[in-house]
């Protein structure tokens, strides 16, 4: 993601798939997202970081069309994001939302509502089961799986819909290192097959491992963006520096930005 703002760095050249234009979102009398301009570039892995409550999840939901912006707009391939555009996106939540059905039935439901049926559906189900390494558990109730298995299923289900963009909202936040590694492998495989990745994480190591571009939010605004190594290696914004050093930064978004 490339964001216009006070600490923007040179970005890799790739066509923008998603764009946020002067995006604002208000809730409960508060401005949670404040005039964000940003671009998601195709086939890239973009990491969104920032302290709790800075609007990361809200931004992801706006980009995916789960909520409508108070002002501004989200563009999909240059046009306002609509149902057709949203159908080319998938999202994985921090806590996997699985139906009270078997592993296989969860995959089947997602594919059915996307209009995939017949041999194509069977092929995608088998591929997703294999991808998530849940072959022995395909007929088990999804909600009795371990946390890691459930999240693998959620990612595999999202990828079975063959999205062009995969959003991950802190998908590994409550997982152990092995389960986190498995999810990261799935994400890399997805990108290798051409899927654009946008993920939120608080894990600096994960951001370095997975991310190519990084956007840093503070108080609902983008305070810094650019290649992950640059932003994390030499942060320019005070909010980014404070966060990396484990300090609480309560200043305004632009405060201390170099």
């Amino acid at each position: 993601m490339h964001a216009a703002g006070p600490a923007t760095r040179p970005e890799a050249v790739a066509p923008p798939l998603l764009q946020a234009r002067r995006l604002c979102f208000d809730a409960g009398g508060r401005r949670l997202i404040d005039r964000i301009d940003a671009e998601i570039r195709a086939h890239r892995r973009t990491v969104i970081m920032g302290a709790n409550g800075t609007g990361k999840s809200v931004l992801l939901r706006l980009l995916h069309g789960l909520i409508r912006p108070t002002a501004g707009e989200v563009l999909w391939q240059g046009r306002p994001l609509d149902r057709a555009g949203r159908r080319e996106q998938s999202m994985v939540f921090q806590r996997p939302v699985l139906l009270r059905r078997s592993v296989l039935a969860n995959l089947r439901f997602a594919l059915a509502v996307r209009g995939v049926d017949g041999p194509e559906r069977a092929t995608r189900e088998a591929k997703a089961i294999e991808r998530a390494r849940l072959g022995d558990l395909a007929k088990r109730p999804a909600r009795v799986l371990s946390g890691g298995e459930q999240q693998r299923l959620a990612v595999a289900r999202a990828l079975a819909c063959e999205p062009r963009v995969l959003f991950l909202d802190e998908a590994t936040a409550s997982l152990d290192p092995a389960s986190t590694h498995a999810i990261e492998e799935l994400v890399r495989e997805a990108q290798d097959s051409g899927v654009t990745i946008v993920l939120i994480t608080h894990d600096i190591g994960q951001a370095r491992r997975l991310g190519e571009d990084l956007i840093f939010l503070h108080a609902g605004r983008v305070v810094e963006s650019g290649p992950v190594a640059d932003v994390l290696g030499a942060p320019r914004a005070e909010a980014t520096r404070a966060w990396l050093e484990g300090r609480l930064h309560l200043g305004p978004p632009g405060h201390g930005t170099s």
């Binding site: 939901r61 995916h64 939302v97 439901f109």
Partner: peptide, 19 residues
Amino acid sequence: EYAEQFSSLQVGPLDRVLA
């Protein structure tokens, strides 16, 4: 519990009620 996932998958009204 399901609302965001359903919205993400774009589950239609009938499918939603049946599910």
